[in-house]
Each structure stands twice: as C-alpha cells, then as structure tokens.
Write a protein that binds this DNA or RNA. Structure first.
Length: 109
DNA sequence: AAGCTGACTCGCT
DNA sequence: GAGCGAGCCAGCT
C-alpha cells in the first residue's frame, strides 16, 4: 500500500515522545512541565501528541497538574503506575499520585 | 485560508 | 471547598 499505515509523528510530537521516554520508572511529570521543557506552553498539544503517538512511550508517567491521571485513561495509567511501584491514591474525580514525592525533575532523582 | 477540537492550566466567582 | 470560564499552543478538517 502506498500509505505508510502509520502517520509520521510531527516534530513537536517527536520531542514530547523523546522527553517522556526519558522519564525514569517510578517518577511522573505533568503535561505543563513537559510542555515547558520543550520550550512551549501547550500542555494540550502534549496530551494530543501522546494520544496520537503515545503508544511507544510510557505515557502513564505523564499526569495532569495536581497529580490527577489523564482524563479518560485514569484506570490504565493507575494500573501502570502501580506496576512501577508508584502509590496511586484513589480520590474524587479519579486516582491521583503525590507529585511532591514522584514528580521527576531532570537533575534530581 | 479559516475555524474547531483537544489525554491542559490557571484564575476568579 | 467547589464550580465555571477564559487562555494557550499545536494539529487536523
């Protein structure tokens, strides 16, 4: 087939995937933090990139501001995080993680 | 070319 | 404390 079958990720999406792929297990980042590390303020674009091309990276390590898991994928993310040893706390509106404890900062293990 | 949507975030009421 | 609206960037139709 002439078509690639897989849509090539955009340069921006590729950057997001690259950064998310560098997140160590047991640590999490927020959409806003990822966007900021890329030099942009588009947390929505980050979520969009993961939604389209996040199938090859640990997208579950990316959470919303406040520790909330990605809308519509809270269960999948919670299960993956738990498998990595992250303590996911169930709460109103969905499971959440302690950013103060699991928020990963480049340079700070 | 223009407009709308989206795995978001922050601020105000 | 909770809910609502506006703002923002990037990608897609």
């Amino acid at each position: 087939m002439a078509h690639t079958g897989r849509v090539p990720p955009t340069p921006f999406a590729e950057r997001v995937l690259d950064l998310v792929a560098t997140i160590p297990a047991g640590r999490v980042l927020t959409y806003g933090d990822v966007a900021r590390h890329l030099g942009s303020r588009a947390p929505r674009a980050v979520g969009n990139a993961l939604a389209r091309f996040g199938g090859g990276v640990p997208w579950w390590r990316v959470v919303r501001a406040g520790g909330g898991l990605p809308t519509g994928h809270e269960l999948a993310a919670a299960e993956r995080l738990r498998a990595e040893g992250v303590v996911v706390r169930p709460g109103p509106g969905g499971p959440s993680v302690d950013l103060e404890c699991y928020r990963w900062v480049p340079g700070r293990a």
